[in-house]
Design a protein around this nucleic acid. Structure first.
Lengths: 144, 144
DNA sequence: TATAAGCTTAGAGTTGGCTCTAAGGTCAAC
DNA sequence: GTTGACCTTAGAGCCAACTCTAAGCTTATA
C-alpha cells in the first residue's frame, strides 16, 4: 500500500493532480488510514497508470472516464465502443493539426516575404500583409 | 463613423469581442457621442481589421499588442522586430503540430491494433495497450 | 517533546479568449 | 409617449486541466 506521495513518486503525477483526478471520479484510494490518509493498492496503481497512459495518448479526462467505465466491465462493452472513442479523438486531433498547418503555412509565407533585417519597418511586407488582410498569397489559408 | 453594431457587422467580430479588445488595449473608438456611444473612424476600422487578420494568422492577443505598437510607429522598429514575433509564433505552432502528430500516430496505432467489432472488450487490444503503458509500438510516441 | 515533513479539506487562482448578464441610459419609429 | 432595439458599464461565467492556498491534523525523527 502506497501513500499519496509514494504514488506521486511512482507515477510522476503530483499529489495535487491525483486528488484532482479523484475529485473527478477517475481514480480512488481503495483504503484510508484511521486519520484519513489515502492508501493505494496495486490495483489502484494500475488504474492510475492507465489514466496516465491515456492522458499521454491525447485523451481528455472525459474520454478517460468513459474508457475506465469500459475497463471495469469489459464484458458489457464491445471493441467498437473503444474504437468509437479513439476514432473520435483521432478526428479531433486531425482537425486541430489541419488548423495549425494552415496557420503554419500563413506564417511561413509571411516570413518568406520579409527581409527580417535591421531596416525600419515602414515598408515591412509582414505589416503590409496584415494591413491588407492576407490578400494574394494567403487566399487558401484565409478561407479556413 | 460607425457605431459598434455596424463595426461588428462589417468585421464579423461581436460587439462583445470589440469591447473586450478595447479593454485589453488593442483597439479604441476615436470618438464617443455625448451619451458615451462609441464611434469608429476609418482608421479605427483598419486597426480592427489588422487585429482580425493577425488573429486569423494565429497570433495571440499579446503578440498582436506588440505588432500594433510597431504599426503605430514603424520608423522606430525594424523588420527584424516583426520577423522575431512571427518566427517565435511559427516555432510555437510547429512544436504544437509535432506534439499532436505524436498523439495522432499513437491513436492510429491503437486503432489499427483493434478489430473495432461487436465482440466484447475483454481482449480489446486498445484497452490492453493502455493497461500496459503503450509498450512496444508506441516507444517513440511515449518519449514525447 | 518539539519540530518538521506530510497529510487532510474546501475552495480559489491560473491560462487565453471570449461570452454573457444585470441594471440602466439612449434613440428611432409609430 | 411608449415600445423596442441599441448602447453603456462592471463584473461574472465558461472551458480544461491543473495548481495552489489556508488552516488544521498526523506522523516520523531528533
Amino acid at each position: 500500500m502506497l501513500k499519496i506521495s509514494e504514488l506521486s513518486a511512482q507515477t510522476g503525477l503530483s499529489a495535487h493532480t491525483l486528488r484532482f483526478y479523484e475529485k473527478h471520479g477517475l481514480i480512488n484510494a481503495s483504503t484510508r488510514s484511521e486519520a484519513g490518509y489515502r492508501f493505494y493498492s496495486e490495483a489502484d496503481v494500475r488504474r492510475v497508470e492507465f489514466v496516465k497512459t491515456a492522458r499521454n495518448s491525447g485523451f481528455s479526462l472525459e474520454d478517460i472516464a468513459q474508457l475506465l467505465s469500459i475497463r471495469v466491465d469489459k464484458q458489457s462493452h464491445s471493441c467498437q465502443d473503444v474504437t468509437d472513442i479513439t476514432q473520435k479523438k483521432l478526428d479531433q486531433v486531425n482537425a486541430k493539426i489541419e488548423e495549425l498547418q494552415s496557420i503554419q503555412q500563413t506564417l511561413e509565407i509571411l516570413l518568406e516575404s520579409c527581409c527580417g533585417g535591421p531596416e525600419n519597418a515602414s515598408h515591412c511586407s509582414i505589416m503590409e500583409a496584415l494591413d491588407e488582410g492576407l490578400t494574394r498569397d494567403q487566399a487558401r489559408s484565409e478561407s479556413q
